[in-house]
Simulated scan of single mutants.
Amino acid sequence: MTRRLNLPEAPGSGGDRRMFAPSARRNMAPILEVLRAHAPTKGRALEIAAGTGEHAVAFSRAFPGLDWQPTDVDPDRLASIEAWRRAEGPDNMRAPIELNAVTPNWHETHGPADMILLVNLLHLISEAEARAVLAGITQALAPGGKAFLYGPFLRNGEATSEGDAAFHASLQAQDSAIGYKDIAWVSDRLAPMQTETTPMPSNNLMVIVNAN
């Protein structure tokens, strides 16, 4: 499902259909640091909701041994990912494909994956949709694989800053079904797989999922 939300930093675009997101540029280095420490160096990587494609280019370049498959559901973002791939993508970055990860059983056609990356999606979808995303991740991971879920989360039902509280409220004002998910709720949806949580800049978290 694609929602047209009024977000603080909507992506801009260039003449060749490449889109640019300030948040993607800011969080690229911190995310890459975590990936370098924990991600596999070989196998198949599935990036869900790859957005503008900036992360796909940077991360596939950083992991030449991973067969990097970016996905999205929005046609404009799929076009942007492809434009980035053609302009700067390394050989191991595949052409983007459509994946609506909020639909049940999406893993049946998009797994198995040795690594899954999901950045800044869960707060933009409903709880029911997030359940489908998380259930699919647990089933799409190959044995021994790892998933990385980055974004803003509630802790014990509360936002950790005034900015997060305001953003959460603005999302719910646009659609009462969406907004920040509690980190404990997310971890419960990923059981029985083991998870660990790493603090990230700007009060964000990275949830690392270890497949059994």
Rank of each mutant, 00 (worst) to 15 (best):
E54K: 07
E54P: 00
E54I: 08
A56E: 11
V57C: 01
V57P: 01
F59A: 13
A62I: 14
F63E: 09
F63V: 14
F63Y: 12
G65W: 13
L66F: 03
D67I: 04
W68M: 12
W68V: 11
W68G: 09
W68P: 04
T71G: 00
T71M: 09
T71S: 12
T71F: 04
D72H: 04
P75W: 08
A79P: 05
E82H: 13
R85V: 01
G89F: 07
P96R: 05
N100F: 00
P104E: 06
W106H: 11
T109E: 13
H110Y: 08
H110D: 02
P112A: 07
A113K: 03
M115Y: 01
I116E: 09
L118S: 08
L121F: 00
L121W: 07
I125K: 14
E127K: 14
A128F: 03
E129V: 05
A130R: 15
R131Y: 12
A135Q: 12
T138G: 04
T138M: 02
P143M: 01
G151M: 11
F153T: 01
L154M: 03
R155C: 09
E158C: 02
G163K: 15
A165F: 05
A166I: 03
F167Q: 07
F167Y: 12
S170I: 09
L171R: 07
Q172V: 06
A173Y: 05
A177N: 13
